[in-house]
Design a protein around this nucleic acid. Structure first.
Lengths: 336, 336
DNA sequence: TTGAAAGCGCTAACAT
DNA sequence: ATGTTAGCGCTTTCAA
């Protein structure tokens, strides 16, 4: 069994409180400090965070619930968050709920049992019922990427409407009029926003929206393949297509390859996320890039704020919208 | 504050032990069972796993230390593992050590403080010193993908030598003689094995190994770009190149695009991992595919075996080598 | 500055 | 089948 503070107390002849105070930055006589440190060294003592958590009612652990770890956008955000959280002494328990509302709810209950100090969630259930019980416990919740109705809490979002607007304007500015879109699931917040941006850009340019140019996908690779095939087949006059997330962008590229379509001669394309993938495409893909690292750091910061200034929360809900950026490649043709 | 078992005891008039026994599958009179369940419902009781962990000296938490979450191979394995571990009631704390030995050691200490029941590690430090203390505590360690010297423990590997051998043979069988390789860091186990496979395939075909055709990369995207550029520049006669991990494969594709090289007319290529990426390449890339999901499930299984049959471990070290597979695309030209 | 002691929420041994 | 109780390793009053 691992050494405990009692062992150190015995070995040094000091009381438990002194040892504890040593670990918690209290004042300890120089002589005793040295004795304690020797004992720690010899006994290979490591603080038991479990016991500490039971006593202090704070586990220094935060739970992260996401729809799909196996999704670059999620993975990148988690990498960034985990990095800053751990450097502040917080552990991160990641739960992948596979885009399933039932699993998402179970994940939250799982985290409640483990008494995490806070939850970071990229929500699948847009009603937010899965979070209500946790919120009632007075512990902080930070939402990433998607807002939900039933829950008032902090969130870190991306300006998705503007992102899509920018992309479509980019096409329009280069002479395109028949612009298709491979959108996301209609019930997902980001998908709605991106679709709204598509509408807005077309409307403000006086281009009528045509239903046949709109494909509602599901944010998966296979959905992207399918979407591209359908759009191409139904719209011989389409000269450009905007794909609204990374997985579908990959799918659209697969579709393009399998149909033997040449980019940008036969079809112009703007994708989403993952600059490296864009560079690996031939020709290099023009994309909308999200500030994943910025999101990650912002989320961690907001969460740490709650945790370290417990009590004195300003009452105001934090809600930031980060900006995206278009990274130009060679996949958009300039029409005469 | 959250409800405790004491609250349930008070509310039902039962003793603590009865409640505890209810939660641990003991026998409880039907009438009392109902009373307990009503109380749970009304009090919104959730077991406190922290207290339970302190008492039982088992946190039902396992730590995972990997070099880079932001790496598809790692992310896929973690997704799979976390899935099966959580369905058995185990939480997973993931620590990304950014391929840094110091951070890796710190991650293990962090996990020791949190008293995880086991550690799963894709090791960066090939001497394994970071794991020694944990191992002395008698808790299980499972290594993924890389073996290390100093530590005797279970491991789940891939037959990397054969993987590389197969790839190079694939080239040879199609008439290639001047075959380049973009290898990994020389100190990394998988990189050594893959390099060994390259040598073996060439030697058994009677083709002399030429140093100029070998590039030692670092398993990063940028390393792949650089490797491809160097190999192409130094070997005008090279007709084929084998890239030995996913990130470098992506990098090599970027390099190919930026140099304007046509595949497979000017250069044949076999990459590594990520079938979807391979399909998105133009032309579709031939790759060596690792059974990531198989690895993930195997690792979780081995770990659960240790945890659930504590004590009666067979003493034998488990070490499985899974097989890879070549998925043919159109990136390898048949030479006359 | 240091020590003694209570108690966080649970499990398990023992008694009933 | 159920109740009583000690104690897991720590923090935190309260005294000294």
């Amino acid at each position: 069994m691992a050494a405990t503070m009692k062992d150190i107390a015995r070995r040094t002849g000091l009381g438990l409180a002194t040892i504890s105070s040593y670990f918690n930055g209290g004042n300890v006589r120089e002589k005793n400090r040295i004795k304690i440190e020797e004992a720690i060294e010899e006994l290979h003592y490591e603080v038991n965070e479990v016991a500490r958590g039971l006593k202090t009612n704070a586990t220094r652990t935060i739970g992260v619930v996401i729809p799909e770890l196996n999704n670059t956008f999620c993975a990148e955000i988690i990498t960034g968050m985990e990095d800053v959280l751990r450097s502040h002494g917080y552990a991160t328990i990641v739960c992948d709920c596979r885009t399933d509302k039932k699993l998402e709810r179970e994940a939250v209950e799982f985290l409640i049992r483990r008494r995490v100090d806070g939850i970071i969630n990229m929500p699948v259930d847009e009603e937010g019922n899965h979070l209500k019980r946790f919120q009632k416990m007075g512990k902080p919740i930070v939402l990433i990427d998607r807002k939900i109705q039933g829950i008032d809490c902090d969130s870190v979002l991306v300006d998705n409407k503007k992102a899509a607007e920018d992309a479509v304007r980019y096409f329009i500015g280069r002479g395109h009029r028949n612009i298709g879109i491979i959108g996301g699931p209609e019930e997902v917040f980001t998908a709605q926003e991106r679709m709204a941006g598509y509408y807005k850009a077309l409307e403000s340019a006086g281009i009528p929206v045509r239903e046949s140019l709109i494909w509602h996908g599901d944010y998966t690779i296979q959905g992207g393949v399918r979407g591209l095939e359908e759009l191409v087949q139904n719209n011989p006059e389409m000269t450009a297509v905007f794909v609204t997330n990374y997985e579908m962008t990959m799918g659209a590229m697969i579709g393009v390859n399998e149909l033997g379509i040449r980019i940008p001669e036969q079809l112009s394309m703007i994708g989403f996320d993952n600059l490296q993938f864009a560079r690996a495409c031939n020709p290099k893909l023009t994309i909308v890039a999200q500030p994943t690292d910025g999101i990650a750091r912002e989320v961690a910061k907001v969460m740490l704020n709650h945790l370290e200034n417990a009590g004195e929360t300003s009452g105001e809900l934090f809600s930031e919208k980060l900006e995206t950026e278009i990274i130009a490649g060679k996949s958009v043709r300039v029409l005469a």
